[in-house]
Write a protein that binds this DNA or RNA. Sequence first.
RNA 1: GCGGGCGUGGCGGAAUUGGUAGACGCAACGGACUUAAAAUUCGUAGGGCCGAAAGGCCCGUGCCGGUUCGACCCCGGCCGCCCGCACCA
Length: 851
Amino acid sequence: MPRYNPKEVEPKWRAAWAEAQVFRAETGSAKPKYYVMEMFPYPSGRLHVGHARNYSMGDVVARFKRAQGFNVLHPMGWDAFGLPAENAAAERGVDPSAWTHDNIDVMRQELQRLGVSIDWSREFATCDPGYYGKQQAWFLRLWRRGLVYRKEGLVNWDPVDMTVLANEQVIDGRGWRSDAIVERKKLNQWFLRITDYADELLECLKTLDRWPEKVRLMQENWIGKSQGLRLTFPFTGPAPAGFEHGVTVYTTRPDTLFGASFVALSPDHPLTEALAAADPRVAAFVEECRKGGTSEAEIETAEKLGFDTGLKVAHPFDPAWQVPVWIGNFVLMDYGAGAIFGCPAHDQRDLDFARKYDLPVTPVVLPPDADAASFAVGDEAYVDGGRIYNSGFMDGMEVGAAKAAAIAKAESLGLGEGTTVYRLRDWGLARQRGWGCPIPIVHCEACGIVPVPEADLPVTLPQGMDFGRPGNALARHPTWKTTTCPGCGGPAERETDTLDTFVDSSWYFARYPNPDAAEPIDKAAANYWLPVDQYIGGIEHAVLHLLYARFVTKALRDEGMLEVDEPFAGLFTQGMVTHETYRRQNGEWLEPAQVDIASEGTTRRATLKETGEPVTIGDIEKMSKSKRNVVAPADMADTYGVDAARLCVLSDSPPERDVQWTSAGVEGAWRLVGRVWTEFDAEPSSKAADPARETELRRATHKVIKAVTDAIEGWRFNSAIARLHAFVGVVRQHPEAGEARREALSALARLIAPYAPHLAEECWQRLGESGLIAAAPWPIYDPTLAEDEERVLPVQINGKRRGEIRAGAGASEAEVEKMVLDDPEIARRLEGLSIRRVIVVKDRIVNIVAA
RNA sequence: GCGGGCGUGGCGGAAUUGGUAGACGCAACGGACUUAAAAUUCGUAGGGCCGAAAGGCCCGUGCCGGUUCGACCCCGGCCGCCCGCACCA
């Protein structure tokens, strides 16, 4: 009997799928729709096993839902703008567009080879003018809505990638791609008003019940809603020009206002700037504050620095009470009001500051069991609840009531208002890079900032940008900038910034329903398909892409372009595939395939295969092209076929968990492929099937259908494969020809099809089925057959297993109890003991309590 | 500091609602097939102890305690690891 040969079988069935167009999604079909997609990849060059795992997962879901009778949309595209293309251009002098498209061609071919059931008719890349031109169109519509604005402000500057970054793209004080320490820089920047949607973005998280709790929490924390009081402290003496109203602070603890001992301004506060302009000592202090780094370690150890401005403000609740105004290096300009009042007794940071500069510490919240006469604050601020004292009209109130009372009082005095403050900042979305979507704006000396008319879109990137030097290749292009003003026809310059690539990925799911539409979004098609029923991607996008996409969906909805509130009804965050990293002594990263590893006891030494030179073994990290710690699924597929590779990446590990890559699993997957095929290929046994054995096989078949169906629905792909392994063993034990075996094989082929689709087609054909298994219905189990007729019930005595009995399914407690007590073995065990209680859990277990 | 998660054999992991812990796979060992090897196939296997064997006993899901007839699962307290946020007023 010939062995299963994936090299022959697999291409044949891919051709058959393409021919029959089985993966084509029809908008408006009468079947229920199911939109499943994985986060589209950046076309970096080749697929690694992390990609293979991710897209195999999505494909299991897509094929499963298709078999269950859904009209499935499973599209693919390319997140194709971004820095790696520019870097390739700089290093090798290639054109970023050509480089990107070459990569796309390679990766498309690899994905197709994996047999992923994608509707390729909807494919696009974000660097296609047909895509980014539509993006420019909606960008301008949001501009007209006032959601896009330009402002000079402090921005995050990545000195290596030489571009501005959004807050979400600064991780631990470093650029998310370059890992360079981010600098604060004052620049004219473009922003999207994501903060207008802060409350809705927060509220709608509650409706996303098919999202991981973790992601919702991360977004909730990122949005960072807090309720508090915005309050003004009026100046007691002559006020600095422009600040006649006083100093406005934000606090979440208005109940502690009577414990105030200072007001502190941010070094970036306008009043600080005014003072610095007039007083070189203030200017020197501000300079000192800016020196500190932004990394975690530096912030953690940074000393609290203060500068007494000499100014005094009046306490809002007691005009006679003078409070000094300081400048504090720890006060952030872009949160709250950029100024705080300090209550050292009940805030640790304020306490540290007060101790250092010898400011008063007055407790105003009395802990429940403390004595008002003796309670004092030492080195630790008291931050918990209690009763308010030393606080005039608030005396005796609990913290919550006192907050409300303080807000009411401030409002009645006209000095403040209760407000909600968010941590979320507006989305800075311009990048000083050449390989991105041009911002469709021109700068006219006469008219100022003028949007390009929609009819003139797309504003396309020019040919011949020079990426050989650092900086923005678009800005230094010899002619591209030069244009005429669409308003007055006079000379004008194009905006040279491009959009953050996260803009590109913030709406692509709404383009797949009709990727050729004249409008950015074909509303009818989008209404049919959206929201995405199941989105699959990495946790690293929890507050990046996933927040931006939610925001853009809402903004486009308000513009009338979409009708859904949320883009992704279901989200699954798959684990990363990791691998050790290897570095040559000169620092060059090496691929695992280039390295030999030798183990001596517990130490492992690595050497370069070619030269034998020593190699440093580095951290285990997510597979990425930059660290070169990638293993290609194609290597596995070359040896064992695509189906074994797919089974391998989904076996053994739950999909949400990170896995450290080893090639060990592929052998097991390959054996499964072989064992399955052997059963289909075997000559039927001439032995007649006996009814008892037929029933046994039928029960196993219906059980495995239930188990695999449940496992796929619960994202336990590894368990589903384990059940299939076991089931093949059962089928093997039942070689007798007959209806039961045929039923078993038919189920087996269809159950394994989402994982090993080529093998499944071959098996299906061998069974004599005429159609494609890719279009065959999912097997349905008979619940009565999926349950055993007879149960083995373990019998415990005092919680320890002491035997077992056999009872019919559903046997009553009384029946079972009688059987147990009649059992001679159990009786022997109970000798000399008196039975206190017998607990029978129907169809499960028996426990006898005896002493 | 705040928020979240995880901890089970040599390894990856299973146990879906509190009911036989270790399914399935990898690696290992033994048998069959083979001149031999590979491939394939059948089998063994948490640890310890008693026994010639059949079989039996004890321990066991990071640690300590609790609830329960019964706990990997629930509760309290520790230890360790991982992730997110963080001078957020």
